[in-house]
């Protein structure tokens, strides 16, 4: 388990990184925290010809309030999400979900941008981005910066809308405001494992009824998905245990997950419903408490 040979560049600025990446061509890969890429390289399941290491690009690590939300530099470490008061204040679900990523030694290196660009279908961060309705900024030397909305970002298993010459530079999460509550639920085989199924919900209340709801899931498809039918079903209704159950069934109805060695398709469908039910109840309670 030793990686194949590769060229290595450690640019000191984003401009330089974009330039190196453009020149290196399609065999190049961006190295962020390396907590997903390097295991694949050690197993020789990935063998990039050229690694462009972003760890020297200091400008990409900033976390700041911006545009009514939270802007997080791509190289911000996952461990900083757990400790940041700004994250806790603006997007609490993100702080909470971050603590479920691997183990703390992995989060000390793993980055927000790296997780989003890697697009593991069971990963926490792409699902939270989707649930929050956020977006990412990607940049290339040739075409400059562009925004990619969360629901456009992931295109399939470990596949994103990011072009080979582009670098994900920043993620933006809208602030959770008003009478809104969130919840994050996950089932994993062991503490710190990738989720078998995870669910993130945001419920916004208008008086006693649901004004709008977002239900996002991981581990149930080739990418993080929203359960649109269930979202629609609960909108305009008063939150209740029965409604959550109803939504859970609707979620099960709209999913056809693929099974793997850890859990079957049937399991993922069933438990997606369970977690959505729990997540809706918790999010509604938080919304009621916050309003």
């Amino acid at each position: 388990m030793k990686p194949s040979p590769f060229e290595y560049s450690a640019p000191a600025s984003l401009e330089e990184a974009l330039e190196v990446l453009a020149e290196a061509g399609s065999g190049a890969k961006v190295l962020a925290g390396g907590q997903s890429l390097v295991p694949l390289m050690n197993l020789r399941l990935a063998a990039p010809e050229h690694l462009v290491d972003l760890n020297g690009v200091g400008s990409l690590s900033e976390i700041r309030a911006d545009d009514g939300g939270l802007a997080i530099g791509a190289m911000a470490r996952q461990s900083t999400l757990e400790r940041s008061t700004l994250v806790e204040e603006l997007v609490p679900a993100l702080a909470h979900a971050a603590s479920h990523i691997g183990h703390f030694q992995v989060r000390n290196r793993g980055t927000v941008g790296g997780s989003l660009a890697h697009a593991d279908p069971t990963a926490e961060l792409p699902m939270i981005l989707l649930a929050a309705g956020g977006r990412v900024t990607v940049q290339s030397k040739a075409r400059g910066a562009r925004a990619v909305e969360a629901n456009d970002l992931v295109r399939g298993y470990f596949t994103t809308a990011i072009e080979p010459d582009e670098i994900l530079t920043e993620a933006w999460f809208p602030r959770l405001e008003g009478a809104a509550g969130w919840s994050f639920q996950e089932v994993a085989r062991r503490h710190g494992d990738f989720a078998l199924v995870a669910a993130a919900t945001v419920v916004r209340l208008d008086g006693d009824t649901v004004a709008d709801a977002v239900i996002a899931l991981a581990g149930v498809a080739d990418r993080p998905v929203r359960a649109a039918a269930a979202e629609e079903l609960i909108t305009g209704e008063a939150p209740s245990a029965a409604l959550a159950e109803h939504a859970a069934d609707a979620v099960r109805g709209e999913l056809s997950p693929t099974g793997d060695v850890h859990a079957s398709s049937e399991y993922r469908r069933e438990v997606a419903g369970v977690l959505v039910g729990r997540a809706l109840s918790e999010a509604a309670q938080r919304a009621q408490a916050g309003s």
Partner: peptide
């Protein structure tokens, strides 16, 4: 007794 097998054992999932 994985979570999958537990649910299967009590008939919560099948197939």
């Amino acid at each position: 007794l994985s979570p999958d097998r537990v649910l299967r054992s009590i008939g919560r999932i099948s197939g």
